[in-house]
């Protein structure tokens, strides 16, 4: 199995930024709605959101979904 330099470069970036992430993708989905509401209200993320934030930094799929989700949130009445 060979890795091109381009792939190695991107993997090195991921390795250098790697942190212990105790959450998985399903765990992220459980908390993401609350996290998004707090995010939109401009409140300081609470301690318990640190894990969600870390997972979003580590998981490209959840990060991608979060960005689409924030678009959808614009259509909700959050008074």
């Amino acid at each position: 199995m060979t890795f091109s330099n381009d792939k190695l470069h991107r993997l090195l970036e991921m390795v250098a930024e790697a942190k212990e992430d105790l959450m998985d993708c399903d765990g992220c989905l459980e908390h993401i709605a609350h996290y998004a509401e707090v995010h939109l209200q401009g409140l300081s993320p609470r301690e318990k959101f640190a894990e969600v934030k870390l997972h979003l930094q580590s998981c490209p799929c959840c990060k991608d979904e979060f960005e689409y989700f924030m678009q959808a949130m614009q259509t909700l009445d959050l008074e």
């Binding site: 689409y68 989700f69 959808a72």
Partner: peptide, 12 residues
């Protein structure tokens, strides 16, 4: 969270 926010997360 609000119910609709939770539901929207699942839909997305």
């Amino acid at each position: 969270s609000r119910f609709t926010t939770w539901a929207m997360a699942i839909a997305v």
